[in-house]
Design a protein around this nucleic acid. Structure first.
Lengths: 150, 150
DNA sequence: ATAAATTAGTTAGTATAGCTAACTATATTT
DNA sequence: AAATATAGTTAGCTATACTAACTAATTTAT
């Protein structure tokens, strides 16, 4: 994959890029997952918690959608988060709905975990040159943009 | 998180970029995972299978290390792969060891799955402009480079 | 040459995380 | 008032992750 161009067709390149991005994402998360285990909280709970912390309180259905899982799955994840004291259920005017919010403990743990998780990646980034870092920053943004179209 | 810079210290930026990359990777895989389900094979099996297909046969311990899981976990994953006809165990000279290899069926399914999985991403990429695609290609490369330092 | 230690994998038991189907309770529509 | 729709939960299945404890084979040490 040392990237000599045989074809300039963007469509062709898109598949190659997609493959590389996919592969890179898998490897990235697998490495970082190891660090997550230190928090003693599973990845699904951690990810759901981050939605509550950074995105604010919301209903179970909304959280399920944000996390791309089915409601029963989210129901269990939330159960675990509650047991661990990371989040709580609140009743709402519409009594079918619940309002989920992060506890202070959940918020604290998330921030600590996120920091720990990301710090090894940040360290690796620092071995790059300034312009490379800058480019990587721009491209991270581009990636999120692409994902929003997925 | 709209990221105005209070500090220009690259170390600070690296954390921000690392966070965004981490987040993007999570979202990317979560979206693509949906497509993987079509194959009827779980993500761990799919990932292990890809090691066998693209990296060639190897022992259970080696596969476990490549996949960053413990041997008992890999033992189960392989069990599932065998039941599904995706891989097989072969005896070796050292009778403690086993040699794992992908079956023809496993190889075929992996290639099909990979294609299907990546094609929606490729489609999203095509909605970008030429220079954006080019930049994203650089990201993939740079990202792999960073990962190799992780 | 045997005993001890190491190595490779499996088995057992537990927890999390995903699904569908079926249920309860509340709200909305007819 | 009855029917329908919506929000969550419960039940039951599977996959994936762990540690601890086991078996079998090989290697090392006595």
């Amino acid at each position: 994959m040392t990237e000599s161009k045989r074809k300039n067709k963007p469509a062709q390149d898109a598949v190659g890029i997609a493959n590389r991005l996919h592969s890179a994402a898998i490897h990235l998360l697998r490495r970082l997952r190891v660090r997550d285990l230190a928090s003693g909280i599973g990845p699904a709970q951690l990810s759901a918690l981050s939605v509550l912390v950074f995105g604010g309180p919301r209903s179970l259905g909304e959280l399920a959608e944000a996390e791309q899982v089915r409601p029963p799955t989210m129901s269990r994840i939330v159960g675990g988060m509650e047991r661990a004291g990371l989040a709580r259920r609140r009743t709402t005017e519409d009594k079918r709905r619940i309002r989920l919010e992060a506890t202070a403990k959940g918020t604290k743990i998330l921030h600590e975990g996120r920091k720990r998780r990301v710090e090894s990646l940040a360290l690796a980034l620092e071995s790059l040159t300034e312009p490379e870092i800058k480019r990587l920053s721009e491209l991270a943004e581009l990636l999120e943009q692409v994902l929003s179209k997925l």
